[in-house]
């Protein structure tokens, strides 16, 4: 193992070591140039939004901007809740129970962004009475779950909390 098999082993070692150090050095230099494109501190700082929901009638929804993205806050009717809860998980491309997607069944809070390519779906449209994305034709149900079309997953639920009966804090 330690036998010198050919001359120049020490030189080979120096070559390998220099290449390694050089590669690490270049990598460390390039990293700041790549990472500067990631979200900066000012973007990250706009992390949460509080919304007054006292004016929203059943069946209506509002759209608020959070981190540059639309968030749908929908006050669902009893029929819509019943429809969302009665769906069998076998019928869903991305199986999730409605109960797991809401904190209070009356209020559906989710990112209003189609999981296909990021368009904003239209509300009360589509074949499942929920949302319909006009860009590439994805249909979502009253729980914001994907039912038909190219979108791979259900619309995302952001981190949120009820501060009191009339206020939701998103983020």
């Amino acid at each position: 193992m330690n036998k010198p098999e050919k001359k120049g082993n020490r030189r080979d070692f120096i070559f390998t070591a220099s290449y390694t150090v050089g590669a690490i050095g270049i990598g460390a230099t390039i990293w700041p140039l790549i990472d500067q494109m990631n979200p900066d501190s000012s973007v990250k700082a706009l992390a949460s939004t509080e919304v007054d929901i006292s004016q929203i009638e059943p069946g209506k929804s509002v759209t608020v901007l959070w981190r540059g993205k639309p968030v749908f806050i929908k006050r669902r009717t009893q029929e819509e809740i019943a429809e969302a809860q009665s769906v069998s998980l076998d019928d869903l491309p991305h199986p999730e129970k409605d109960q797991d997607r809401v904190k209070n069944p009356e209020w559906l809070v989710m990112l209003g962004i189609c999981t296909h390519l990021g368009c904003v779906p239209l509300s009360d449209k589509g074949e499942y009475n929920g949302w319909f994305c006009p860009c590439h034709g994805s249909h979502y149900d009253t729980s914001g779950r994907i039912r038909k079309g190219p979108a791979p997953t259900n619309m995302e639920i952001p981190k949120y909390a009820f501060i009191n009966d009339n206020t939701i804090k998103i983020g």
């Binding site: 790549i34 494109m37 990631n38 979200p39 900066d40 973007v43 981190r67 540059g68 993205k69």
Partner: peptide, 17 residues
């Protein structure tokens, strides 16, 4: 995608780059 955008959606950082 977040890296390309420089944020959580297409916004000013995306435009400038």
């Amino acid at each position: 995608v977040t890296w390309l955008w420089g944020g959580y959606s297409v916004d000013n950082p995306t435009l400038t780059r």
